[in-house]
Design a protein around this nucleic acid. Structure first.
Lengths: 127, 127
DNA sequence: GGTATCAATTGCGCTTCCGAAACAATTGTC
DNA sequence: GACAATTGTTTCGGAAGCGCAATTGATACC
């Protein structure tokens, strides 16, 4: 019994995830990251990084703080840390020199891409 | 390419996830957790919690440390923290009193269940 | 031009985490 | 029963994160 026909949902709706599989996926990805010592980022820092690489630029400290509902120092310090890792970089806004524009880097893109690959791989192992 | 009919697999192959959607899912879940201040757990602590609730018991400090490839104090301290939150509890092994058996709790199950629900919900929003 | 407003950063005190080593309690060995 | 091995915890020094308030530099207002 597919059972989907009556609901009108397409069964190939991209991401259909049971709670059990969702947890297993989270666990497997976390395990890969912890074992590989790639987990040097806080959940907040990870969120900031993903926002920078997923949402459309430009990104400012204030904009990120508002969007993520954290204080500005959190953003500044996260940028310090991730900047030292080479995952992001800063640049003054020429139009309004109060602003700081957060820019993506090659290493940051590779880092995010590696995370995506890890998730996808474990999602495939999950069937 | 469907290509699944010949294999006998159901076309709803559980989790088919593009890299883009994987990152979006990770971002959305992290955002929900950070905004709700539910992110009080380190990635390591989260991994430990999920392992306790996903893998078959019994769990010991040493067993978890070996399985997750972290040192024993990491497990002990994580149990301290999560124990104070009511997410897990400890009990001496009667058979071998050197061992500590880590047990699940109602609150811990609810916490994990809430995480699963968050993931599933955002996965559904993702199509 | 002088003052208020705004963006980002920094200082301060506090908490938490980590790794490595030392430690206490229990069990196995001879 | 003495001694080694095992399990989990604790201690110590150091690093990093957080919230809040103060600070610096730049722009807007009148």
């Amino acid at each position: 019994m597919s059972g989907f026909a009556s609901t009108g949902f397409s069964p190939s709706r991209g991401v259909g995830l049971s709670p059990q599989k969702a947890l297993r996926l989270w666990h497997d990805v976390a395990l890969t990251r912890v074992r590989g010592n790639i987990g040097d980022l806080t959940e907040r820092q990870m969120l900031i990084l993903l926002t920078i690489y997923l949402e459309t630029p430009p990104h400012t400290v204030r904009g990120l703080a508002a969007k993520l509902d954290v204080t500005k120092p959190v953003i500044t310090r996260a940028l310090d840390t991730m900047g030292a890792m080479g995952l992001v970089s800063r640049k003054r806004d020429d139009a309004d020199k109060r602003n700081v524009i957060i820019q993506r880097t090659v290493d940051g893109a590779l880092y995010v891409e590696a995370l995506a690959e890890t998730i996808v791989r474990h999602a495939e192992d999950l069937r």
